[in-house]
């Protein structure tokens, strides 16, 4: 397992560098934003009769850097507060950005992961089937459905689902995440949670599914041509065992696709949550942009990028756990 620890350390280091790039980028965006919002806040406070010191402290608490400092000083303040997980306060509601984000994150992370995992499972099974039946009509149709779904943008899928199941044939809700009249964590509350999550999760599932089918199909076709499959057949191995051999070998490259999909679905959530009025990070991002709530906006941006980076790291590490060629190669070093 020494190899694994080494790999983990390498991945974390790389991840941290990426996070640093992203937070620097966010800082630059805020600094060069027209109208200099931090400065504006500061002057606004001055006009309300605060003393310059008070106004400066107030603005710094909101934005995490002093409006009058140099760019470098501001950057140091900003990074320093991030290291303490202090993301400042919302300009709109004056609540800690970290709290706002944590509230919203659960509405994004859980449905996005659920949707991606569902479509992964579905895509893998259908992809195997499409590969085995590749010379039949059914196989062709499955492959085509994959290409087609892959071509449709996720927000179009979301709009279609919303108009079909919430408008034309209104059997599913398209507003919010839960019926707020229920007492939290009663049976009705949990049911209502699931009920409200159906459409967003279905949208995530359908929009990621096409990519999984296509990737799995081509991967299975490659493995089917491998010598060890014929060898297993000639050794009289049971079909179910050979099927497992094929599936496990073919699924390996899919973990890379999985990581990319999580990233894509995460960013897709920005539009999808808007469609279903789902109170997740995407909604929060759009709302905060509308309200010029820069601190929340920056925090949401940062959180989404960090989530994508983490998804990639996890996928890569997982890969090394299930592929002995990578796992054991690491041990040797």
């Amino acid at each position: 397992m020494k190899g694994f620890a080494r790999r983990l350390a390498g991945q974390l280091a790389r991840g941290l560098v990426m996070v640093w790039v992203v937070l620097t980028f966010t800082f630059v965006i805020i600094s060069i934003m027209p109208g200099d919002p931090v400065r504006a806040e500061y002057e606004n406070l001055l006009q309300q009769g605060y003393s310059p010191e008070q106004a400066e402290a107030q603005a710094a608490m909101l934005h995490r850097f002093r409006p009058t400092g140099s760019v470098f000083e501001q950057y140091v303040d900003y990074v320093g507060s991030l290291l303490r997980f202090d993301l400042g306060q919302s300009l709109y509601s004056r609540v800690d950005v970290a709290t706002v984000l944590a509230d919203a994150a659960k509405w994004t992370v859980i449905p996005v992961l659920l949707g991606t995992v569902l479509s992964f499972g579905l895509g893998v099974v259908v992809g195997v089937y499409a590969a085995i039946k590749r010379s039949s009509k059914l196989g062709d149709m499955l492959t085509m459905s994959g290409s087609l779904l892959r071509g449709i943008p996720d927000f179009v899928v979301g709009l279609l689902l919303a108009s079909i199941f919430a408008t034309l044939w209104p059997i599913l809700p398209r507003q919010g995440a839960v019926n707020i009249l229920y007492e939290p964590w009663t049976v009705e509350y949990v049911l209502s949670l699931g009920y409200h999550a159906i459409l967003p999760v279905a949208t995530y599932t359908i929009s990621a599914y096409g990519g999984f089918i296509l990737a799995m199909k081509s991967s299975v076709v490659t493995v089917l041509g491998d010598d060890f499959i014929l060898a297993a057949e000639l050794r009289g191995m049971k079909r179910s065992i050979i099927f497992r051999y094929i599936a496990r070998n073919a699924i390996l490259p899919l973990f890379t696709v999985f990581a990319l999909s999580v990233a894509a679905v995460f960013s897709g959530a920005i539009f999808i949550e808007r469609i279903f009025n789902y109170p997740g990070l995407g909604m929060l991002l759009i709302d905060s942009i509308g309200r010029r709530d820069i601190t929340v906006m920056a925090g949401a941006l940062l959180l989404i990028t960090v989530a994508v980076i983490i998804a990639n790291i996890v996928a890569d590490l997982f890969y090394s756990v299930i592929d002995p060629r990578i796992r054991r190669a690491g041990d040797r070093v």
Binding site: F228, A231, E233, G236, M237, D323, P324
Partner: peptide, 25 residues
């Protein structure tokens, strides 16, 4: 047929081929 393969008739592959599943010992 499956039982005959491996059970009564053994087949040894060309050495250059990879006749083993790379993911299992």
């Amino acid at each position: 047929l499956r039982r005959v393969r491996g059970g009564q008739i053994g087949y040894v592959f060309q050495a250059a081929q990879n006749s083993l599943n790379p993911l299992k010992t």
